[in-house]
């Protein structure tokens, strides 16, 4: 991979609008029937983003999707990109084997702390990174290492969180990561909306200075506001109730992200009928955007 990002991104496929899953998600009561979505609304079920913990593998629903040769992306759930120890040979071998089965368009996933210490089942966390320059450098090194080890693009995603530590704005942090790793990014609009609220910012603060041409994929998801000790918190719970803040971010990014190739509506725990308004809203946001022009 000696070419730079602007060259490499040309070779990535345009996936359209899709949905996410992870092991066993389809078994939950009221979960989205991905196959039914694909059959009834192929424009909303264009690809499957597969959340993968190597210890669990992929479930029969994902196997079936792959067996039909449909597009996927590989969303990791078990690697701390900033920890070189995490890219151990055993894990990398297993990732390689899954890539062979899924044939994902790229790898992506939250660039945060998925676990403390060595990987151990049952101890999954997901915390945002320390928002500092040296953390951005370590994160970038991990992205490059995983990209070289797998031969696939690795798109870091801004993780959710209730508490953020460090002097940088989240978007400034990821701008540094993208620059240092010369990579594209998965921008999670719902996660960004949460960060902006925590910091007391407007939803689109910082996007004007962010290299939106590096946004290859975007996530949209609903959230719920809860109160803890008198403090208003936003839970990224993947309902279909997308916050207005999130839509503001989606509209802004869609209008300017020239390399946007995939949008996931993270609604895997909701019945199909309940998800359709959200999908249509996403479709409208993209219709006049560079993304929509490629449909």
């Amino acid at each position: 991979m000696s070419a730079n990002f602007d060259q490499r991104v040309q070779a990535l496929p345009h996936l359209g609008i899709g949905v996410s899953t992870e092991y066993g998600a389809a078994n939950a009561q009221g979960a989205l029937d991905v196959e039914a979505l694909h059959q009834a609304h192929p424009e909303f079920g264009g690809f499957l983003e597969v959340g993968v913990e190597i210890a669990k593998g992929i479930d029969p629903y994902t196997e079936t999707w792959c067996a039909k040769g449909r597009p996927t992306t590989y969303h990791f759930l078990d690697v701390n990109l900033d920890e070189p120890e995490d890219l151990d040979p055993q894990w990398l071998t297993a990732v390689g084997a899954l890539i062979d089965r899924l044939q994902p368009a790229w790898l992506c996933g939250d660039a945060g702390l998925w676990h403390h210490g060595p990987r151990e089942r049952g101890h999954m966390l997901l915390l945002p990174p320390i928002l500092s320059d040296d953390a951005a450098k370590e994160m970038a090194e991990g992205i490059v290492a995983l990209r070289e080890a797998t031969g696939r693009e690795v798109l870091p995603e801004n993780p959710p969180g209730h508490v953020y530590v460090g002097p940088l704005h989240l978007l400034d942090f990821f701008a540094r990561v993208c620059d240092l790793a010369d990579t594209g990014m998965l921008l999670d609009a719902a996660h960004l909306a949460i960060f902006q609220r925590v910091g007391g910012h407007a939803p689109t603060t910082g996007l004007d200075g962010f290299p939106l041409h590096r946004v290859v994929e975007m996530h949209v998801a609903g959230a719920t506001t809860v109160e803890v000790d008198g403090l208003s918190l936003v839970e990224d719970d993947h309902t279909v109730d997308v916050l207005p803040d999130t839509w503001a971010i989606v509209d802004h990014v869609a209008s300017a992200a020239s390399a946007l190739k995939a949008v996931v509506f993270e609604c895997e725990r909701n019945p199909l009928a309940a998800t359709l308004p959200g999908f249509r809203r996403i479709q409208r946001a993209l219709a006049t955007a560079p993304f929509g022009a490629r449909w």
Binding site: P129, I130, S132
Partner: peptide
């Protein structure tokens, strides 16, 4: 590196 030490304090 400091970021890792900080991240562990956060946990």
């Amino acid at each position: 590196v400091t970021a890792k030490a900080l991240q562990r304090v956060v946990v």
